[in-house]
Nucleic acid binder design. Sequence first.
DNA 1: CGTTACCTTGAATCTCCTCAATACACGTGG
DNA 2: CCACGTGTATTGAGGAGATTCAAGGTAACG
Lengths: 254, 254
Amino acid sequence: MSSKRATKPKPKVQTPCDRCPLRGLDTFRDFTPEELAFMLEFKSGELVLDAGTSILHEGSNSPHLYTVLSGWAYKYKTLPDGRRQVLNYALPGDFIGLQASIFDVSSHSVEALTDVVLCVFPRERLWDLFARHTGLAFDVTWLGAHEENILGDFLVSVGKRSATERVAFVLLQLFARARQAGLVKNGALGFPVTQELLADTVGFSLVHTNKTLKRLRRSKAFTWQGPTLEVASEDKLAELASTSPPGTGRRPLI
Amino acid sequence: MSSKRATKPKPKVQTPCDRCPLRGLDTFRDFTPEELAFMLEFKSGELVLDAGTSILHEGSNSPHLYTVLSGWAYKYKTLPDGRRQVLNYALPGDFIGLQASIFDVSSHSVEALTDVVLCVFPRERLWDLFARHTGLAFDVTWLGAHEENILGDFLVSVGKRSATERVAFVLLQLFARARQAGLVKNGALGFPVTQELLADTVGFSLVHTNKTLKRLRRSKAFTWQGPTLEVASEDKLAELASTSPPGTGRRPLI
DNA sequence: CGTTACCTTGAATCTCCTCAATACACGTGG
DNA sequence: CCACGTGTATTGAGGAGATTCAAGGTAACG
């Protein structure tokens, strides 16, 4: 086998759950020793993908359940003629494919937005998890309900918020979630979302999204240039979004 | 105690789960004898409410988890200045307050759209259900994920569908869900949604919703006059909505 | 028979979309 | 090294779509 240098070096480390870097964050609740033991053998591998790679496809089924270890992904649905609506983003600690595991087909597509590392779990053992670990089963349901909340917030945005409110809301939510996932350093976040993707998130055309951003920048509540987003004041941004400032809640992981 | 006649006679029957009328429908999967035994003592009562009554309030918490036995309810969120967005409808067999049971507060409000009868379950015993009945725990998660799917579909509608598509989609979805819940007789459905509520569901103003309905009626795919909705062709309506015709899947109950 | 809730319609205004052109950063091959 | 293509961001102009305001209309109910 040739030993030519790969175009892009990939992390080869298999990260066991007892050394999960996410669990160090105080965002996530701790495992009991029994839960940890179960997770160590439940996790069946890691999946390392380049940005732009498709992870799940609407209508197809997947033998795996994923958790994001690092990187960003986004979930979306498309209409027959190609119109695309982003439903949600998956950040480190978030599930991918829970629905596809519970039903037999995925209701939406998922694509890697950056290079990502996913923890892989075999979906047929999800039943074991439910049968043997009530706490983990509850966590799974918790995470599902949490996603539903985010979807509900997005639905309110798209249905009832004005253009500036909508854009402000999405920027704020993503920034706050990234902050909880430990991705914000010195108030700055590596933000891989393009304006086109943002447009498909808020339900506007690209052009109108761009013009709305221009108006919004005048508020000085944030700066977004190139790939970094800095939020000067979450409170001010929350006000612009007609919402309350995001908190710092604790949540389950996996 | 006076025995004056009540302004509106209310059904007094306490319906035990072994005689649940919904379970007769072949939409819902059967309980095992053990599950049935558990549910019989899990259900702690029935709540009978008039149309217009508030069931849950956004931000508050509730000691109960509900299931709709009969009637319609709707879930909604409001912005600080009063704008309202409907998130979903609850039909017989649907949960109300699952999120409020899992987190400590409800993320949305719920109001009775018609007179409703709710099955009441104490939320602190939800843990017992998870601990003792894996199948039921899975069903709870299934129902939560199912709701998330519906929210996702609505989000696509509001974000990307045209006016006529949007209205057609909501009418079709509600009709199909009502059909599965056994509410459609001879192709006709008692449809308690007002145009104002429909407007807050699809994200349009009342006026524009009305004009969109007028245009849609020309298709002859449905009639909606007074309180009854008749769908002549779900396929045609699905086409108008840029979606695929709804099926007849089996689902868990409670 | 008047009140109330809901539906309907027209007109003026504003929001948002499409089309089109430009600009910039980046990587690739000549 | 430069020319070129690709992906992303930006801006203007004109038109379609949605909102608001305003005025009626109908059916149910006390």
